[in-house]
Design a protein around this nucleic acid. Structure first.
Lengths: 137, 137
DNA sequence: GTTTATGCAAATTCTTTGCAATACT
DNA sequence: AGTATTGCAAAGAATTTGCATAAAC
């Protein structure tokens, strides 16, 4: 089972309250989180700056990844920890126009796309916007 | 033929130098532009704030749209003006890891994607990152 | 002549940096 | 004990707002 503690250990990062809490948030809420979301939910427990630094540390260690957002806000989500070997990240996310939540659509896989000549693909990110199941009427 | 003037008129917007120049930039450069790109290329001809306001006006009027970017920078590109009636926007963009340019891949169309139950699609945005033809050795 | 856009100053928000104090291993 | 992380202050971007002037219709 995935725990905040295990994630930090497997990346050889020090175990601190802030790091544990932030990973916990990502594990609980199954949506992409922005810095401000974490600030709100952790309610002043940690400094704004510490949250920024923690997010950057997690980015560098591939614990989280940036999630595209059409509004310009920067959001993050946990990387799936099963496929550490397979480094071709493919992300399909759904952002609800009503509640604003962004969720990973794990079940959907991206079809292969043939790029024009001379283009070499590294990563694919698909963002679908619309209305999510919870907001649907 | 598409001209800055016609675009503004068709949206019932006042014709001003700043608006004309910015649309011209989008028409000439065939890549997504950030606020800072416009600031640089228009070289202090207009105030920073005016550029922000112009971009927001264009967004509201569907003259431009935001282009997703993995780095967090906000970039914009012209909406295609042929399909005003068809409002199902589909954007496929390619961002080069080396030169940083984001180009629209008009030639590629996205396959239909089947969403989980209860989800309703409005728009799809695909961002492919990698190496573009110009930077490819 | 009326309405809208622009430029400037200033306010907000977002993010990063420096450094001493603290916590982790 | 030694090294990395945190909090605070402050600096630096990015973006927005208010208001008087200027331009568009």
């Amino acid at each position: 089972m995935v725990t905040p503690n295990k994630i930090l250990k497997s990346h050889k990062l020090r175990i601190t309250d802030c790091r544990l809490d932030i990973i916990q948030e990502f594990l609980e809420k199954q949506v992409a989180l922005a810095h401000s979301d974490l600030e709100d939910s952790l309610d002043k427990k940690f400094d704004r700056v510490t949250i920024y630094r923690t997010l950057n540390t997690f980015l560098e260690n591939d614990i989280i990844h940036k999630v595209l957002d059409d509004s310009g806000a920067t959001k993050y989500a946990l990387c799936s920890h099963e496929d550490d070997h397979d480094h071709s990240h493919e992300h399909v996310h759904f952002k609800c126009d009503i509640c604003g939540e962004t969720t990973c659509l794990e079940s959907i896989s991206l079809p292969q796309i043939k790029l024009p000549k001379g283009f070499e693909k590294r990563e694919m990110n698909l963002l679908v916007t619309g209305i999510c199941d919870k907001c649907h009427q």
